[in-house]
């Protein structure tokens, strides 16, 4: 229980936020690469890429629905949680929205890097593998990272999901102010500053490489 104290002490509330918002990471990791793969398999990608619309815009907008649907799912999770007694009366909605925007930027960038690997390698994307296998275990989805041995917590600290979930719990369950959420906001901002250009560069390179190889529409 002591490990849950920083989040209000209630495990159900803790795990509800964890499961609800970790869905964004899974959506980001899947949707970008799946949108490319889907169009490749249907045979429509080539017809799309010969239009003036930029490849990155096509991939990003193709994934938009997945994020909207995920947001709807998160809302449902939270509503059901409230009906089952989760106390969000002190929630700082504005701060939660800021954390959410930063979360989507970070996770989206990771998803675009993952899609870049898919575009070049076609299968076996290491980014997806790394984040899928580590985030649930080390990112604080099902239990606080403080229960992990200290050396394993190092892994948690290099994962954006750790800061995202921690910030979201503090904002929604305990109503932390923006200044109190500064550590999470700063960490997520740093991740964004690094991941956004990395995502754009890797995707630009991947498209160029696929066009060089003539493998743009191969899957």
């Amino acid at each position: 229980m002591a490990h849950l104290e920083p989040y209000g002490g209630d495990y159900f509330s803790f795990v509800l936020i964890g499961i609800a918002f970790s869905g964004y990471l899974m959506t980001a990791l899947r949707s970008f690469s799946e949108s490319i793969r889907g169009e490749q398999m249907m045979g429509t990608l080539e017809a799309m890429l010969v239009t003036p619309t930029d490849t990155s815009a096509i991939v990003t907008l193709s994934s938009l629905w997945s994020f909207i649907f995920m947001s709807f799912r998160v809302l449902m999770y939270l509503l059901i949680g409230i009906l089952l007694g989760v106390d969000m009366s002190n929630a700082n909605i504005f701060a939660a929205l800021i954390i959410l925007v930063l979360t989507i930027i970070c996770f989206g960038s990771i998803g675009i890097i993952s899609a870049s690997f898919i575009m070049v390698l076609k299968r076996g994307d290491p980014i997806n593998m790394f984040f899928m296998s580590t985030s649930e275990l080390f990112g604080g989805v099902l239990f606080p990272i403080s229960v992990l041995p200290e050396w394993l917590q190092t892994i948690s600290h290099i994962l954006p999901i750790t800061y995202s979930l921690s910030g979201m719990r503090h904002a929604l369950l305990q109503g932390y102010s923006l200044s109190a959420l500064a550590p999470e906001i700063i960490a997520l901002s740093i991740f964004s500053v690094v991941l956004v250009p990395l995502g754009l560069l890797s995707f630009t390179y991947a498209v160029k490489r696929a066009k060089m190889d003539g493998s743009l529409v191969q899957y």
Binding site: M42, G43, T44, E46, M48, T51, P52, T53, I58
Partner: peptide, 23 residues
């Protein structure tokens, strides 16, 4: 390649979609 269309959409819907990609 006839696979380059969305088969479940109508002809008009297909053209609308590709028209939007042409702005």
């Amino acid at each position: 390649d006839e696979r380059s269309f969305y088969w479940r959409l109508t002809g008009r819907q297909n053209l609308k979609f590709f028209a939007s990609l042409h702005n």
